[in-house]
Every structure is written in structure tokens, then in C-alpha cells.
Design a protein around this nucleic acid. Structure first.
Ligand code: FES
Ligand code: FES
Lengths: 158, 158
DNA sequence: CTTAAAACCTACTATTTCTGTCAACTAAAT
DNA sequence: ATTTAGTTGACAGAAATAGTAGGTTTTAAG
């Protein structure tokens, strides 16, 4: 099991957005260039993130994407929820509302011993990723000495 | 990201072995029947687990597989290590010996902010899964009231 | 010694998921 | 009106996964 590129790209792109952009919308192509991700593909990912309420978008010239909340209010968990779905590890865990479709998969439902393991692990990861935010990432980046790209659109407003 | 069937089947099969078998070797077909896993596929998985030193085997009639260690000495981590490889989440984490091939994947190596996240998470999971053993699973199973299958080969020895 | 039961090995196929691209469309700014 | 840029859904190639199959080797039992 590996994270899908949707998740990895998603996290990187959102970090990039938090790190390099001000309050102005940022175009997909800029992030794509900086992070070396196919722009078309990134659009798809951003669409998911938008549905998840993590991004907002603005069309037209000078349009682009903006974080829907402050970086410290967006956790890795939020992102993974949008890109991977509710449960890592297995599909058969029943979360929250009982309307979710169940795939028993092994043993009868509720009688599966291994399910408890994956469920525990899932809770642990959820809790952990919930504490790591984009702001933390930005701080790490700064500590590592990563340069921000100067946003040349600011020129017009000086 | 979901666990591969190799991992899920593997854990279930090993649990089955720990729960239902005595010291005698158990055949693939028995486990396959009890756990409803394709016998031919299970053979493949068992080969991996054997290479990883978790199982020992005996050929010929009355042959089969046996746990290489006591159930309390086999952790979920050991199993996942055999079925999933060293790192969950991403491929680019460098573990232990530097001879492992690196796939930078995002940013320059050592300069990737997100890598630290996945690495942390990987460590956390490794630590957690390292504390859960097959014995724990057996205890849970007993608490849940799962029946053991009577091993009818014992009949011959009474 | 023969037979049969089981693990062992290699290769193949089918299915699904992932990754990325394309073209047509819609909204916004000038 | 025109142009820029995001939106959408379909789609195709690649890769990983899941499972199948045939044959070989080892070993216990008769
Ligand atoms: S029912 Fe899902 S792990 Fe067993
Ligand atoms: S280099 Fe692997 S996550 Fe960035």
C-alpha cells in the first residue's frame, strides 16, 4: 500500500500554495511549474480539494485557487480525507453514519478479528495526521531554508 | 491507499494458523477453506512469509506450514514487512542501509518537506504494529467467542 | 518400490487502479 | 466582444494487483 499520487501531489500543491502565495489567487500552472506536476492532472486533484472545501477558486484573468482556510486550520488529515477517502488500510470499516456500504470481505461483519486491527490503526493515523497542518509544513520548510518564489504580480500593486 | 490482499490475507491466514493449529503442520487447503482464500494464491503468499522467516514448512504427506516463532513473538509489523515492504505511504524514504535505491520523486532528496511527514507517519505505524502480535489477535478472537476448529488429525494419536 | 499428498516454482492472464491527456464548455475581466 | 483561465467529463495508456495454471520436487505411507 502506497499513497496515491493524488494524495502526495495534493499535499505538495497545497503546501506550495500556503508557502509561496499571498492572499491573491494562484494559477494551476504556477504551482505545476514549481512542483513539477502535470498541470492538467493537478486540475483534477484541485477539483477534489475544492469539493472537500479546502480550496476556493476564482475564474477569469487573475483567477486561480486560494486556500479556503488559514494554513494552520488545514491538516494533513483533511487533505487525505479528500484524496483517499475515509479509511486507509481497508474498505470494510464502518465509519460514522451507518448508511455507508459495507463489504464484509473477511469473516462476518462484527465477527472479524483483523478488522479491529485496521480500525485501530486507522484511528491512530487519523489522530496523528489531524495534528499536522500546512502551517507546520511551512515552518519546516523555512527551517530547511527553502526559498519562496517572489510573486511578481505584486509589482503591479506597489 | 489500501492494504493489498497479500497483507490482509496474510494476517488472516497467520492468525488462523495461530488460533486453530497445534504444533502439527497445517496444510494450505485447510486454512484456505476456513478463511475462504484461494488456495493457490495463498501458497504464493506463504512463500513470501516463509522467506521472511515467519513460517516454516514441511513437504510431503502430513506436511504443511508452521509458525516459525511463538504467536506472541510475531507482530503485525513483521507480517506487513514481508507483504508490503519497508515503508508504507511512499517509496522514497531511505531506511537503514543507504544501499537502497532512491526515488527522489518530489523536490531534491533531503530537501523535501512532505517526505518528513510520511516518514514520521511510517515510524509511528511501525511502532504501533510492532506491539500487536498474533497472540493479541487470538485473545481478541477468544473474547469475541470465535470457535476453534477441532483438529481431527489428533484422533489418530489418542 | 510405488503411490499419493503436499509444498515449491515459474509463467501467464485477467482485472482493476492509477496516471495523465484531450476537447468542449463556462465564467469573468477588460 | 474578446480573451483568459477555470470546469467538466470522457478516455486511453501504463502499471500494479489478483488470481490461475501446469509442472516439479520432496516425503510419508503402504
Ligand atoms: S471484515 Fe474487513 S478486515 Fe475483516
Ligand atoms: S522526496 Fe519523497 S515525499 Fe518528497
Amino acid at each position: 500500500m502506497k499513497l496515491s499520487t493524488k494524495s502526495r501531489y495534493g499535499v505538495r500543491a497545497l503546501f506550495d500554495l500556503a508557502y509561496n502565495s499571498g492572499s491573491l489567487p494562484t494559477q494551476v500552472q504556477d504551482i505545476s511549474r514549481r512542483q513539477d506536476i502535470s498541470p492538467r492532472y493537478l486540475e483534477q486533484i484541485f477539483q477534489n480539494l475544492k469539493k472537500a472545501g479546502i480550496l476556493t477558486s476564482k475564474r477569469g484573468p487573475k483567477g486561480g485557487y486560494t486556500l479556503a482556510r488559514k494554513p494552520e486550520e488545514i491538516s494533513i488529515r483533511d487533505i487525505l480525507l479528500a484524496t483517499e477517502g475515509e479509511s486507509l488500510f481497508v474498505d470494510c470499516i464502518v465509519v460514522g453514519d451507518g448508511r455507508r456500504k459495507r463489504k464484509p470481505e473477511c469473516g462476518l461483519n462484527g465477527c472479524c478479528v483483523t478488522q479491529t486491527i485496521w480500525s485501530d490503526a486507522n484511528n491512530l493515523m487519523t489522530e496523528h495526521f489531524g495534528t499536522v497542518t500546512l502551517k507546520d509544513l511551512c515552518e519546516r520548510a523555512q527551517a530547511m531554508g527553502l526559498k519562496r518564489e517572489v510573486d511578481n504580480r505584486m509589482m503591479y500593486f506597489i
